[in-house]
Every structure is written in C-alpha cells, then in structure tokens.
C-alpha cells in the first residue's frame, strides 16, 4: 500500500514536470520562439539575459563571458555517455591548446537543475579539465539560457522509472566580443575541433578593435 502511495506521488510529480517542460518547450521551441525574427543561430552573449550560479556557488551571467572567447555546451551529470564524452573531448582539445586555455571561457550548463545542484556540478566538473566551469540555477533561468543559445532539451522517462534528458549536444563557440562563431558538433574529430577553437580565439583581436 505504501509502495502504491509512493508511486502515486511519483506519477503526480511526473505530470507536473511534464507541464513545466511543456511550458519550457513552448518558450524555447514553440510559438513563443517563432514570434521573433530567428535564423536559428545563438544570440550574441551580450543579447542574452539569464542569471545562474557556477559550481563554486558564485552568481554568473552571459555578459561575464564577454572579453574572452567562449565554449558553451549543455548537458547533465546523470548522463552516462554523451556528456562525459563531450567533457572528455573538450578536455582533450584544451590539452592540445595548451597554455592558451586561460584565455578561454569553458562553460557546461546543466539542463537538469533538479538533480544538478552546485555540489553535484562541482564534483562532476572536477573529473575533467580544470578550465571547465559548471553552471546551474533555477529552471526558468535555464530555459532562458537555452533560448538564448537556441538549444533545446526535454525530459524523457526511462524504462527503469527514472528520467533522462534529451538535449542539444553541440558545443557553441563565441569570440571575445561575444559573437557566435560556430558550433563543434558532438564527437567532431579533434583535427576539426581544435582549429575551430583557434579561429574563435584569433577573432579576439578583431573583436577588441
């Protein structure tokens, strides 16, 4: 009986989350997004507005990324394959870029703030390259962030009764002026990824003048 009650609450929770996500979808992907002029490219970082916290609990916002080129991507720490692979790939690119990495912002934004609190993000990014920062925050702020990057995500229930997140797995590259340069697609070979990042970094001087 107790088990049934718990399952009942679980189902209610799933329904409530479904509604929240539907609202999120409407804003990110649905008519809410179509209302504006949209070429599908991420907005400049200077035109985005959202407030999150980093994995050290400090308040962060997109304007803080302007001044250095940036790599930004979405994911979640309960992700068994795509996210650790992306983080490991990025760690490899950063190793190849060597000392230049202190001139680069690298930000991992969670699409699963319910499970990814500051502590979870801190532990998770700690396994990868030290330049990688983890951002989390309120669901509504994550929705706004995804909207700015033209990223999408949705919750999907698994066979085991848990949930997973489907999400944009591309890495977004911005120049130092905060302008979108290109994406590095999931699992793109290093020989393509690293030159793309170098190009974004070279635009730093142009952006500054």
């Amino acid at each position: 009986m107790r088990r049934r009650a718990i399952l009942g609450y679980g189902a209610g929770g799933v329904a409530a989350l479904g509604l929240t996500l539907l609202a999120g979808w409407w804003q990110v992907d649905g008519s809410g997004a179509l209302a504006r002029e949209d070429d599908g490219r991420p907005l400049p970082l200077t035109a985005m507005e959202f407030d999150l916290v980093d994995h050290e609990g400090r308040p962060v916002s997109p304007d803080m990324l302007v001044g250095q080129p940036s790599l930004v991507f979405f994911g979640f720490t309960f992700c068994p394959d795509v996210c650790p692979t992306t983080l490991a790939d990025i760690s490899g690119w950063l190793d190849e870029l060597g000392t230049a990495t202190h001139e680069l912002n690298v930000v991992f934004i969670t699409v699963d703030p319910e499970r990814d609190d500051v502590e979870a993000m801190a532990e998770y990014v700690g396994y990868f390259h030290p330049a990688i920062r983890g951002w989390t925050g309120l669901e509504e702020q994550i929705v706004r962030a995804a909207e700015g990057f033209r990223a999408t995500y949705e919750r999907a229930t698994t066979d085991s009764g848990d949930y997973t997140m489907n999400h944009t797995s591309s890495v977004f590259l911005f120049d130092a002026a905060g302008r979108f340069v290109s994406t590095v697609d999931y699992h793109e070979p290093r020989e393509f990824a690293v030159p793309k990042i170098r190009r974004a970094m070279e635009q730093e001087t142009e952006g500054a003048t």
Binding site: D81, A156, D159, N166, T168, S170, T183, D185, Y186
Partner: peptide
Amino acid sequence: MSEIHRVTTDARGVSTM
C-alpha cells in the same frame, strides 16, 4: 538493470538515447 542504448543526434544537434 542493464540494457544497450543507442544514441542518435538529429539535424538540430539534439542527442537522444
């Protein structure tokens, strides 16, 4: 529970398993 999952990434870059 163990199962094999396939990852697919659509034209918009959204990955699903």
